[in-house]
Amino acid sequence: MTGETDAQLVARVRRGDRAAAGALAERYLRACRAVALAVTGDPSDADDVCQDAFVSAMERIDACRQPERFGAWLMQIARNHARDHLRASRPVLSIDRMEIASARASPAVEAERRDEQARLLEALKELPEQRREVLLLHDLEGWTHREIAERLGLPPGTVRSHLHHARRRVRDLLPELEEETDG
């Protein structure tokens, strides 16, 4: 991954630099998906929404007033797109799921994974949207408390509190869920 700052990459994107856009996608597309997943609760929708949100951000890159805070700006765009998607209740420009070639596990393993994912998504639905967002960004995407606070515009104490309550609630709902020691 490039060592350039967000502001430097944004400046290059403004000049039409594809590689810079690719670096921003590598840096933020997964987080964008996590935010979209927190809103829609559906991984496939989240894939579509994060894609649309990122393309939209590239189209409106001149409107990014604080390029050093590109991440926060993109997360807001992703959130808005996801909410619009929910309101419209129609698929956005969809990836043809049938044409995607991927290494599939055996049907039994695949079914187990789907079941595990479904139970997790059901548990996440019990959380307020912002707590879901914080939990996914921290425990799935590996963002630090500080990164989440900066990019979501929340006080660090609030981030810690959201994370604590979210984890506790999910554990209550899914006691079988494996745990990892926080790094």
Binding site: R30, R33, L37, P43, D47, I95, R97, I100, A101, S102, A103, R113, E116, Q117, L120, L121, L135, L136, H138, D139, L140, R160, L163, H164, R167, R168, V170, R171, L177, E178, E179, E180, T181, D182, G183
Partner: peptide, 20 residues
């Protein structure tokens, strides 16, 4: 504070690397 990270890997897009 609850410092134990949850295992959310079931939601990891990289689980289906081809799709991601």
């Amino acid at each position: 504070m609850d410092e134990r990270r949850l295992d959310l890997s079931a939601l990891d897009p990289a689980r289906d690397a081809g799709r991601w």
